[in-house]
Simulated scan of single mutants.
Amino acid sequence: MAWFALDDGFDTHPKVRKAGNAAVGLFVRLGVHATRHLTEGHLDGDIVRSYGTEPNVRKLVSVGMLHTSGHTCPRCEQPADGDYVIHDYLDYNKSRAQIEAAREAARKRQQKGRDTARSNRNRAGNGSDSGSIRSGNGSESERNRTRKDPLFDDAPAGHDDLSRRDTHEGATVVPSPPLPSHNYDGADAGGGSTGSSAAERDAFAPTPIEVDAFQLTDAMRRWCAATYPGLDVDHSTAQFVSHYRSTGTRRKSWPDAWQKWIRDDAQRAQQRRPFTQSNVIALPGQTQPLTGTDAKVAGWLAIRDQLRQQGDSA
């Protein structure tokens, strides 16, 4: 999927104000069309006229957002007779070669992921790696120990790959539109289903890992202290690790499992909390106070006797 870029000053640009909303809406549609078909800003005249009215097309040409054949702009190529070209398109958008190269790289990454998932399933079926996975000494466990959950990672967020803001060499850098979340079960807006096979879904699915990969971070301590003050986070975490280590259970996200454990632990502690003095009534002649239902019944009987005494004295 490619993107037609507009910078954050587009809405107040003098050309945009002069062209008006209707003509600008036509311009955006034409830009998306050119990006989808990788024309590098060149537009067929019939497409332009089918998208908008002649007055709006003339407005875009008059303000310099579109060029016709024979234009005098030194930075833009000449379109064919009857066609149009978007002004400075390649200053803000990637070229056809760049987009095709990025798509080919993405295709190779997806194929590598599918091959890796298929290989992992084959090894799991043969049982050749089951011992090393359970032992926690293999390279897979070492990688798992370095994983961090984004909810509790104290490190600043960032990206290792190039941003979508990168354009061709020497081009002006402009903000990119928000990126959609990946949907490996559906199709792209431009058509063509991607990631719909079970193998591709498996390639991007998180891998269950052992509890030895779990680490209690400072951010998780702060969350526990703010949410459940008074709870012994170290004791609860030790119980959590011991439980899952003894059972050999594996989870895809240990921080999520830890959060659930802490919530349950706090609830159990609340339920184990002893009755307060307001819920305890000591009857005459008793050394141990009554609790629970007995205390409630005794309290009602005491209130009844008090009311009777008040009635007799009246």
Rank of each mutant, 00 (worst) to 15 (best):
A225M: 06
D160H: 13
I262M: 15
P255K: 10
R251T: 06
N144V: 00
A203F: 08
S236M: 07
S135E: 03
Q215F: 06
D232V: 10
D234W: 05
P229Q: 11
A213M: 11
F204K: 12
N137M: 02
A171L: 09
E200G: 02
G230L: 14
T146D: 03
D153E: 04
R245F: 05
E169S: 11
V174W: 08
F214I: 08
S163I: 01
R165K: 14
R134G: 01
A187Y: 01
R134Y: 01
A198T: 07
G248Y: 08
R250W: 15
T207H: 12
F152A: 05
S163H: 10
D232W: 02
I133D: 12
Y228K: 07
S246Y: 02
P177D: 09
G248R: 05
F152E: 03
S193I: 01
C224M: 11
F204M: 08
P177Y: 05
N183Q: 15
A226T: 13
F240R: 13
K260G: 12
A155R: 12
P178C: 06
W223Y: 12
N144P: 00
R263S: 13
D256W: 04
S242K: 13
G138A: 04
E200C: 02
H182P: 15
S139W: 00
F204E: 14
D153K: 08
R221E: 11
T167Q: 04
A155I: 00
S135V: 00
T249W: 07
H159A: 14
S139M: 09
V173S: 14
D218E: 12
A189K: 08
S196Y: 00
R245V: 03
A171E: 08
S246P: 02
D232N: 15
P180Y: 03
D149P: 01
S176Y: 01
D149T: 06
P175E: 07
D161S: 14
Q215R: 13
P255A: 09
S196P: 00
G186F: 03
R147D: 09
T146C: 00
D153V: 07
Y184C: 07
D264Q: 11
T167E: 01
D154E: 14
S242Q: 15
R143F: 00
K260P: 01
G192I: 05
T146L: 10
S196I: 00
S135P: 00
H235G: 03
S197G: 13
Y228D: 05
H235W: 08
R245K: 14
S181K: 08
G158Q: 10
D264V: 01
G186A: 14
P150F: 06
G190E: 11
T146F: 02
M220S: 14
P178T: 03
A203K: 12
P177G: 09
R165V: 04
F240C: 13
G190Q: 07
D232G: 07
G195K: 05
A203T: 09
W223I: 02
C224D: 13
G138H: 01
G230D: 13
H182C: 02
A189N: 11
H159K: 13
S242A: 15
I262H: 14
S139E: 05
P206M: 03
R145P: 04
P229I: 10
G230T: 09
P180I: 03
